[in-house]
């Protein structure tokens, strides 16, 4: 199976080609109920996770709620 290399929160990850954000979150065990996602610095809304497919060398940020001032 062909795979792609993407950066997820700064870590290199190998994923299958044609991998959606929804699939990526599942494969990397992110709990996606309260997550925000950006790909290459662009926000991706949750309702687009299943139809947004990652490409080689994409940079993905997965953010979760934390305390802040």
């Amino acid at each position: 199976m062909k795979s792609i290399s993407v950066s997820v929160n700064g870590e290199k990850k190998m994923l299958p080609a044609e991998c959606s954000i929804k699939e990526m979150l599942k494969r990397l065990s992110f709990h996606d109920e309260w997550l925000g996602v950006a790909v290459n610095g662009e926000f991706v809304p949750k309702d687009a996770f299943a139809r947004t497919f990652l490409k080689e060398e994409d940079e993905v940020d997965v953010l979760a709620p934390v305390s802040g001032g």
Binding site: V8, N9, G10, E11, K13, L28, S29, F30, H31, W34, L35, G36, D61, V62, L63, A64, P65, V66, S67, G68, G69
Partner: peptide
Amino acid sequence: TVSLRRQGVNKEAGEGFW
């Protein structure tokens, strides 16, 4: 006030706080 931070892979960071 709250914030967002990168979540570690395979972790549930933030869920308890939120």
